[in-house]
Design a protein around this nucleic acid. Structure first.
Lengths: 153, 153
DNA sequence: GGCAATTAGCACCTTTTGAGTGCGCTTTGG
DNA sequence: CCAAAGCGCACTCAAAAGGTGCTAATTGCC
């Protein structure tokens, strides 16, 4: 499916919340009081974001999470990679053999290389979308490289 | 998951095969003799592609499938839409309410609109990748609009 | 010191989705 | 008439995603 998981969605909302109050710690409870998210699952997500180095945690009674770095330096790609990994677009990116031993020079499926390029483009898109751009409502920051398509639709 | 399904992968391979022998019909059996794909599943996929108008079918003993239009006018987006639909990137693109009645002006989640823009970009990428570009090995056709990123990585 | 609030870690269950198959029907060429 | 092909539906099986239970470990505050 060409779709982000709910975990990623939860993570993004949490990060936006953290970005809003830059510096101050926010607990899972606090975030769940703001958005209607399942508390326990959000906790798992934030734990994963902590492992990925996107947020820092402080434990104890008045603990919580803070952003590990500026919203300008956290990208959608970072979040997706932390919560979903970076899987290939198709299993075809791993080698698939032709039957009958046709083409030996390129023993992999004919789609492989073009699909890889599409995946690279997709990740460029994710990497260029910063947390800051989600917070500010400004569509994209540092997207000049892709900006040529702006005029469509 | 940010990943294409195997059905889409199978469909792309089948379409590439059809594009190779433009005009001639190719049966499911023939395609499966070329690529190691499960016959029945591929049949389901081709049926869906037929419903979507991407291929035309002829029944009967010497039947099979042909491309419904030029490889230049079949895009990755067409194939994905036919086989996976066009789901939103997050459920967040459907309205999610803030708790406590905070912001009335924008009652939806703060991520919604930026995520929609990312999805639009993603689909532009898919729409600009043609079947022809998969066949010819040329990375992308009519991708001038997105070409500015070419130099990265 | 003790309590309450919080994060940390692991294991488990449930639901959803994807992949694949069974079976019978229809169509068509030889 | 038969064989080869597509058509349609329903069903099973496996994997992934979403969510929860339970028990620590940590820390602030009384």
């Amino acid at each position: 499916m060409l779709q982000l998981t709910k975990r990623t969605e939860y993570g993004l909302l949490a990060l936006v919340h953290l970005a809003d109050r830059e510096g101050a710690v926010a607990s899972v409870r606090e975030i769940c009081e703001r958005y209607p998210l399942p508390k326990r699952t959000l906790a798992e997500v934030l734990k994963d974001l902590q492992h990925a180095g996107l947020v820092e945690s402080t434990r104890g009674s008045s603990g919580g999470y803070t952003l590990a770095r500026s919203p300008l330096r956290v990208t959608l790609g970072d979040v997706v990679r932390a919560l979903e990994g970076a899987p290939p677009l198709t299993t075809c990116e791993s080698p698939i053999v032709l039957k009958g031993g046709g083409c030996e020079v390129q023993p992999n499926c004919p789609i492989r290389s073009p699909i890889q390029r599409v995946r690279e483009r997709l990740w460029q898109l994710l990497e260029h979308t910063t947390l800051h751009s989600l917070v500010s409502g400004a569509p994209h920051v540092s997207l000049g490289a892709l900006g040529a398509v702006e005029s469509h639709r």
